[in-house]
Computed example of a mutant assay.
Amino acid sequence: MQIQILVIEDDEILNSGLCYNLQKRGITPFSAYCVEEAKSLLKKEHFDLILLDVNLPDGNGFDFAEETVSRCNVPFLFLTAHNLEEEIIQGLRAGAEDYIVKPFSIRVLMEKIQAVLRRCSGTKKTEPYVCGSLTIDLENRLVKNKGSLVSLTPTEFEILEVFCRNRDQILTKEVLLEKIWDRKENYVNEHALSLNVSRLRNKISDGEHEYIKTIYGLGYKWAGEMQ
């Protein structure tokens, strides 16, 4: 399962650098530069970890952590330029896994991220997605259509998972191939991908909803509304 991390940092250079280093380690990063952008992404995506700057243009990281992040059941690390004991205590009391003071070593931060991910893996539950007549339980790898179990191959399920986790994005065939097969060092051509997407589309179809939309010349996009 692909790990996704939300980077909430208004310094564009630092945000970009963090995302670059996360990608190098096989992690999918998402960038937010303010509280409102972060809130929007949290409504749409599942995250395994959040990197949260304390000082943001439209809000305070401590308030955001207590009001929003704490309800998402996602571990988070504070990033700050302030090395004040009171703020460190405040950050830890807000539920942060750690409090990272700028400037920091990227290598050390990446190791701390991996340590948090290891520590928190298996401790949080992912709620099933409900979309139209579909119930998609990514944690237990189960899909139901109108209450009846849908039998998917491992490849079909992985494609469905990628769509669910990237449901507001157009996914090119190249991106799908990279996310699903390249990480396993298996080669699958575009024809095999199209065939698997077609089979998946037929298996989850209910005659009322279009879940996977073909964007001609580009790729595919999840068209269902998640509840």
Results as ranks from 00 to 15, higher is better:
residue 83 N to V: 02
residue 116 V to W: 00
residue 97 E to A: 13
residue 105 S to G: 07
residue 109 L to N: 03
residue 110 M to P: 01
residue 102 K to Y: 07
residue 119 R to I: 06
residue 94 A to H: 07
residue 88 I to V: 12
residue 91 G to F: 01
residue 87 E to H: 13
residue 83 N to S: 11
residue 105 S to V: 05
residue 124 K to I: 12
residue 106 I to C: 11
residue 112 K to D: 13
residue 93 R to T: 11
residue 124 K to F: 15
residue 120 C to T: 13
residue 107 R to S: 14
residue 81 A to D: 11
residue 103 P to Y: 07
residue 117 L to H: 10
residue 83 N to H: 06
residue 110 M to E: 01
residue 104 F to A: 03
residue 97 E to Q: 14
residue 121 S to A: 15
residue 98 D to S: 09
residue 98 D to E: 09
residue 113 I to Q: 05
residue 115 A to P: 09
residue 77 L to K: 06
residue 99 Y to T: 04
residue 85 E to R: 14
residue 100 I to T: 09
residue 113 I to C: 09
residue 97 E to D: 11
residue 79 L to G: 01
residue 99 Y to N: 05
residue 86 E to A: 12
residue 112 K to P: 10
residue 80 T to I: 04
residue 98 D to C: 04
residue 84 L to E: 15
residue 86 E to R: 10
residue 102 K to F: 00
residue 108 V to A: 11
residue 110 M to V: 06
residue 104 F to N: 00
residue 100 I to M: 11
residue 79 L to I: 09
residue 107 R to D: 15
residue 82 H to S: 13
residue 109 L to K: 08
residue 120 C to Y: 13
residue 115 A to M: 14
residue 87 E to Y: 13
residue 91 G to S: 01
residue 117 L to C: 07
residue 89 I to N: 06
residue 98 D to T: 01
residue 96 A to L: 03
residue 101 V to E: 04
residue 95 G to N: 02
residue 93 R to S: 12
residue 83 N to E: 05
residue 114 Q to F: 06
residue 85 E to H: 09
residue 80 T to M: 03
residue 116 V to K: 01
residue 122 G to Y: 08
residue 110 M to Y: 04
residue 77 L to N: 01
residue 100 I to Q: 08
residue 114 Q to W: 07
residue 122 G to I: 08
residue 92 L to Q: 07
residue 104 F to Y: 02
residue 95 G to I: 04
residue 89 I to P: 07
residue 80 T to E: 02
residue 79 L to M: 14
residue 124 K to G: 11
residue 114 Q to E: 15
residue 89 I to K: 15
residue 110 M to F: 02
residue 79 L to D: 06
residue 87 E to I: 07
residue 87 E to W: 12
residue 103 P to H: 02
residue 97 E to F: 10
residue 82 H to A: 10
residue 107 R to V: 13
residue 123 T to L: 14
residue 121 S to G: 10
residue 80 T to W: 00
residue 98 D to L: 06
residue 79 L to N: 02
residue 123 T to Q: 14
residue 82 H to Q: 14
residue 87 E to L: 15
residue 77 L to P: 00
residue 91 G to E: 02
residue 117 L to V: 11
residue 96 A to H: 05
residue 82 H to M: 14
residue 85 E to Y: 13
residue 113 I to D: 03
residue 122 G to H: 02
residue 123 T to D: 08
residue 92 L to E: 00
residue 108 V to P: 03
residue 106 I to T: 12
residue 86 E to W: 12
residue 122 G to D: 07
residue 111 E to W: 10
residue 109 L to A: 02
residue 117 L to R: 05
residue 113 I to G: 04
residue 80 T to F: 04
residue 77 L to D: 03
residue 124 K to R: 15
residue 93 R to M: 11
residue 90 Q to G: 12
residue 114 Q to C: 12
